[in-house]
Every structure is written in structure tokens, then in C-alpha cells.
């Protein structure tokens, strides 16, 4: 029973990791960009959530109404202003520029909020739980997982059923020909980054309600997200959700064996999958 409990908690934790990963997956799918500052943007979202919920006396989840559009705007401007200039055949410029952004974000947050760990107060939601066949499930982890499923589903819908999604896929297929259709590549990428960072805002708020955070934790959030994307298979959003779940289960089961093994177990499962199935468990089928 205890093991089953660990697995179930891991599945729910995987929802949070899928939220970390969804934005990365989207950005990579549309413009082949790997954003090293992704984890720091998640942390930025958590801090913005903290500030708005404290300043306006809002519940952190309600703060999303402000934080998600704010991050979307930041994403659009970041893409149009800086990141679009780095895209090309050379992988170095986007990597180095987002690495620089990561250092800037971390230190700016340090300057403003200090290194003291912070947490958002979500009231009763944090401790509420439901009992299911002898296993106690936290309402917050359940909600996180449900939101992750909903967001992945929504992104999938946008991708395959809207004009914006068509523009994303067309630009990803062939930038030049997409321009011939009157699509402004710079703007398409801007919208993709805006959407990705709106999702990142959700990830940041749930992170900040669930655990305490400080400006330095972005790197490991990036790594969790990255692992979920690779485990699930590049360019497959449902795969990314599955990857998050696998990573979450590996961590909770690892922690059950030995508390010091939580993170290590996740990384080891990631490396094993990389060794056995380098293109992930559910790679996108290409026609």
C-alpha cells in the first residue's frame, strides 16, 4: 500500500513537471529553440504571483489572471526583441543568450526579493485532502495534475484546430514558405513564446503554492522539464505529460527507498531511457 501510495503521489507530482515542460516542448516544436532561462522564468512567475497576491490580497490561483498575461507579454517582447535575432543554423547564439538571460533573471530576483525562501499562501487548499480507498490524496496535487492535463489538451487543440496552430506548424515545417503565406515569422515566434510563458506562469504559481522557492532554483526546474520532454519524445505534448509522470514516479519511488535518492532516481531513470530509447518513449510519428 505504501508503494502504491508513492506511485500515486509520483503521478500527481508528474503533473507539476508536465507544467514545467509544456512550454519548453511548445517552443522547441515551433522554433527549435531551447530556452535555458525557462526555469528562471518559472521562478519569476512564482515571485510575480507572490507579489500580486500579497499586494492585492488575492488567492494565488486568482493572481494567475494577472500573472499569465504578464508573462505572455514578457514572452512576446523577449522573442521579438532578443530571441528572434539568435535563431539560425548556429545553436550557439540562442543557448548563450538564454544562458545570459538566466543569470540576469536570477540576480535580478536576488536583488529584489533576497535569497530568503518564499512561499505563497493558498489557505485551506494546501492541506485539504480526500481519502480514496485508504490512500489520502492532497487536493492541491490533484488540482495540479488536472490543470496539467487540461493545459496539454488545450495546447494540443490550439496546435491542431486553430489558425494560430496552423501558423505554428507551417512555420516549423518551412519558415520561408510560411512567409510566402503572409505569415510574419517574427510574430509567429512571438505568439509561440507568449503562449509558452503563459503556461509557465501556471507552472510557477503551482510551484510556489506547493513548495518554498528562492531565486536559485530555476536551474533544476529547467532540468525536470527538460527530462520530461526527452522522456516523452520531442514534439509530442501528450508524451511530455507522460514523461512528467514517469519522472515524478521515479522520484517518489526513489525517495521511498532512501530520502536522499529522490532526485538521483529521477535522473537515473532519465539516463536509462536515454540509453535505451534515445528518441523518447513516444516520439512524434513523422509522415
Amino acid at each position: 500500500m505504501e508503494w502504491l501510495n508513492a506511485v500515486i503521489q509520483g503521478v500527481l507530482l508528474g503533473g507539476l513537471y508536465a507544467l514545467f515542460a509544456a512550454g519548453l516542448s511548445l517552443i522547441f516544436g515551433v522554433m527549435r529553440l531551447v530556452n535555458i532561462a525557462h526555469g528562471d522564468l518559472i521562478v519569476l512567475a512564482a515571485y510575480l504571483g507572490l507579489t500580486t497576491s500579497v499586494a492585492l490580497g488575492l488567492h494565488p490561483l486568482l493572481a494567475l489572471v494577472l500573472v499569465a498575461p504578464a508573462l505572455a507579454a514578457i514572452g512576446f517582447l523577449l522573442q521579438i526583441g532578443i530571441l528572434n535575432r539568435t535563431l539560425g543554423n548556429d545553436i550557439l547564439p540562442p543557448l548563450l543568450v538564454t544562458f545570459g538571460l538566466s543569470v540576469i533573471l536570477q540576480n535580478a530576483l536576488l536583488e529584489i526579493y533576497t535569497a530568503d525562501p518564499q512561499k505563497m499562501d493558498a489557505g485551506a487548499l494546501e492541506t485539504a485532502s480526500v481519502s480514496l480507498g485508504g490512500i489520502s490524496l492532497g487536493v492541491l496535487p490533484l488540482l495540479t495534475f488536472a490543470v496539467a492535463v487540461a493545459i496539454v489538451g488545450a495546447l494540443q487543440w490550439v496546435f491542431y484546430n486553430t489558425a494560430l496552430g496552423r501558423a505554428f506548424r507551417a512555420t516549423s515545417d518551412n519558415q520561408d514558405i510560411a512567409q510566402l503565406m503572409g505569415l510574419n515569422k517574427a510574430h509567429v515566434y512571438g505568439y509561440a513564446m507568449a503562449l509558452a510563458l503563459a503556461v509557465t506562469a501556471v507552472a510557477g504559481i503551482f510551484l510556489g503554492i506547493r513548495t518554498s522557492f528562492d531565486p536559485a532554483i530555476g536551474g533544476s526546474r529547467l532540468i525536470f522539464g527538460f527530462e520530461a520532454v526527452i522522456i516523452g519524445g520531442l514534439g509530442n505534448l501528450w508524451g511530455t505529460l507522460a514523461g512528467g509522470v514517469i519522472l515524478g514516479v521515479a522520484q517518489t519511488v526513489g525517495a521511498k527507498i532512501d530520502p536522499g535518492w529522490q532526485l538521483l532516481a529521477g535522473h537515473i531513470v532519465f539516463l536509462l531511457i536515454l540509453a535505451v530509447r534515445p528518441s523518447g518513449l513516444f516520439p512524434k510519428v513523422t509522415g
Binding site: A163, R166, A167, A170, D173, A178, M181, G182, T286
Partner: peptide, 24 residues
């Protein structure tokens, strides 16, 4: 432009390829 080599979008269905042409 109808480009050399056709250059359709492989991720898009036939109808989506046509629709994206008309997006302007």
C-alpha cells in the same frame, strides 16, 4: 508564389495547406 518543388507543409493536411494560403 507557387514555389519550385511544390513545398507543401508536411505537418498540414491538404485542406489546411489551402486554408493557410488564404489567411491574409
Amino acid at each position: 508564389l507557387v514555389p519550385e518543388g511544390r513545398q507543401l507543409f508536411p505537418s498540414l493536411s491538404v485542406e489546411e495547406n489551402l486554408l493557410i494560403g488564404g489567411r491574409s
